[in-house]
Structure formats: C-alpha cells, structure tokens
Simulated scan of single mutants.
Amino acid sequence: MEKVEPIRDPKKIEHLKKYLLGAGNMRNYALVVLGLNSALRISDILSLINIFSKAVKEKINPSPE
C-alpha cells in the first residue's frame, strides 16, 4: 500500500479549493471544506452523508405503517 501524506501547505489547500469551485464541482468542494474544518476522515464524512440522505428519503417518502 502506498503511503499518503496530508497537504500541509496553506497555499496548496487554497489552490485546491479554488480549483474545485472554478470547475463547478460543489460536491467535492463541500467535502474538502467539511473535512478540513472538522478533521474527519473521508470515510466518516461519507457515512454521515449516507445517514443524512436516508433520513431525508424517509421524510419525503415515509413507509406505510
């Protein structure tokens, strides 16, 4: 397995954020900003998104009781 290092240079982080915004990729921009500001791993963020999306789907289409 290849070793992965975090991006530590603030200029590189800002460049990445500007690139994602300029490319119109709001989903990835939001994931990057959320990860940077919360210090969560991407797997944790995706788990939260899955839980949230399931809750929204249940709210929109409630199961019959």
Rank of each mutant, 00 (worst) to 15 (best):
M1Q: 05
M1A: 13
E2T: 10
K3E: 14
V4A: 06
E5C: 01
E5M: 04
P6R: 03
P6V: 01
P6A: 03
R8H: 08
R8G: 08
R8N: 09
D9E: 12
D9S: 07
D9H: 04
D9W: 05
P10M: 03
P10N: 11
P10D: 09
P10Q: 09
P10W: 10
K12L: 14
K12V: 11
K12T: 11
I13C: 06
I13Q: 10
I13H: 03
E14C: 07
E14Y: 05
L16I: 13
K18M: 09
K18N: 06
Y19I: 05
L20W: 06
L20N: 06
L20H: 06
G22E: 11
G22S: 13
G22Q: 06
G22I: 07
N25E: 12
N25D: 15
M26S: 10
M26N: 08
M26D: 07
M26I: 10
N28Y: 05
A30W: 01
V32I: 14
V33T: 10
L34P: 01
L34A: 15
L36A: 08
L36Y: 11
S38E: 10
S38K: 13
S38Q: 10
R41G: 04
R41M: 04
R41F: 01
R41V: 01
I42H: 01
S43C: 09
S43V: 06
S43N: 09
D44H: 11
I45M: 00
I45C: 00
L46Y: 03
L46I: 08
L46P: 02
S47L: 04
L48E: 05
L48M: 14
F52H: 04
S53L: 02
S53K: 03
S53C: 03
K54Y: 03
K54C: 06
K54L: 08
A55H: 07
A55Y: 04
A55R: 08
V56T: 04
V56E: 02
V56A: 02
K57E: 05
E58L: 09
E58Q: 07
K59H: 08
N61R: 11
N61F: 12
N61P: 02
P62G: 03
S63P: 07
E65A: 14
